[in-house]
């Protein structure tokens, strides 16, 4: 650990310049931060991007008060079950989704403002042994849950009042789904990765499981982050949290793989790596927005890549006060949130 702390970030070209610090949020509650995200919020006819921070027992909504100044609007107390993560809901408004549980997700809750009672509330959306969850555009949420006998994959259409308008069951694959990603530009398509290292494709409208395509054995335990359909191919952004350092590439963070859904064949398109020379596991966790990837590294730095070029474009060195622990793209894009465990969040323009 000491060696990790003292090792500088060995990158020649990428620097902080492509990330411009916009503002800092400081949480004085003293609780350990577990996640950070953004949400569109409309109040009194004004729609603005707000920041959401989560500790194990509370989720706070932050509002921009003035340039470089943020204030807490409200804190939801969730003290019975620990918060594990915030689930971003792209292009929704006035709704925050959180996953809670002990080691694994046991419940999903919606946090919202009720104009009927003029108060902030939260409601239980789903319980179970939940393995993966993703928020999709247009107020949709997909999750997979597992019982001893079977796996259930379900899409829920969310309502502004913290409930569900509709539910659609998706055909489960035999293997456990480990992650979901929406397909850019194809509203009814959804991809997932499985514990058997396959990519699966669903039709969200019909619930059909359209295709299962094996990724290969070179990069086990792949996690999907994003997908794009173009020219008859399905491009999937994968991360490989358990990938070993290789001589040719160094430490791999993200990979873009092109799949032909008709044949199930695939080929690697780009690899986003750190330069070789630093042994050990680099990648702790990451997030993808459009074609930009961000990851927190073991050194406490945050690295950003252009995934289409496979190039590292920016690095936030470990902060002398504390290592970066969280890196998330804002739902609006072009903004990166970097968070420390002490609750401090830096908002960068990218």
């Amino acid at each position: 650990d000491v060696a990790e702390q003292l090792t500088p970030v060995l990158l020649d070209s990428p620097r902080e310049e492509s990330l411009q610090l916009v503002s800092e949020l400081k949480d004085s509650s003293g609780s350990c931060a577990v996640d950070v995200s953004t949400v569109w919020w409309e109040a009194a006819g004004c729609r603005e991007l707000r920041v959401v921070t989560a500790s194990e027992s509370a989720v706070s909504l932050w509002k921009p008060l003035a340039p470089n100044c943020w204030g807490k609007v409200y804190t939801w107390r969730l003290e019975e079950v620990p918060v594990i993560q915030i689930v971003p809901l792209p292009n929704t408004c006035n709704l925050v989704c959180v996953a809670l549980g002990e080691l694994e997700i046991g419940e999903i809750r919606l946090l919202f403002y009720s104009s009927e009672t003029d108060s902030f509330k939260h409601s239980l959306l789903k319980t179970g042994n939940i393995k993966a969850v993703v928020g999709l555009k247009d107020w949709r949420l997909v999750s997979s849950s597992r019982t001893m006998q079977e796996q259930q994959v379900e899409m829920v259409l969310l309502s502004e009042t913290g409930g569900s308008k509709d539910r659609q069951t998706l055909m489960p694959p035999e293997e456990t789904v480990t992650a979901f990603a929406e397909v850019e530009g194809m509203r009814e398509a959804l991809v997932g990765t499985t514990a058997g290292n396959s990519v699966v494709v669903w039709n969200l409208k019909t619930g059909q499981l359209l295709r299962k395509m094996h990724i290969g054995y070179s990069y086990p335990a792949s996690i999907c982050h994003r997908a794009y359909s173009d020219s008859g191919l399905l491009f999937v952004v994968l991360s490989h949290p358990h990938a070993k350092e290789s001589e040719s590439c160094g430490s791999l963070a993200f990979r873009v793989v092109a799949f032909n859904p008709c044949t199930g064949r695939s080929t690697g398109v780009t690899f986003s790596c750190l330069p070789p020379g630093r042994a050990g596991r680099q990648y702790l966790e990451g997030d993808v927005w459009d074609t930009a990837g961000a990851a927190v590294l073991m050194s406490g730095a945050v690295a950003v890549w252009d995934l289409l070029r496979g190039q590292c474009t920016a690095v936030l060195p470990p902060d002398p006060i504390g290592h970066w622990a969280l890196a998330r793209w804002a739902t609006s894009g072009a903004r990166l949130l970097a968070g420390r465990r002490d609750g401090t969040v830096h908002l960068y323009r990218y």
């Binding site: 019909t206 799949f259 044949t263």
Partner: peptide
């Protein structure tokens, strides 16, 4: 990549797979 690597490509793969897959 070339077409030979990935096999024949269809721009309407989503519709075609939806028509073929079990309901």
């Amino acid at each position: 990549c070339s077409e030979s690597d990935l096999g024949p490509i269809s721009l309407s793969w989503f519709e075609e797979l939806s028509a073929e897959a079990p309901p």
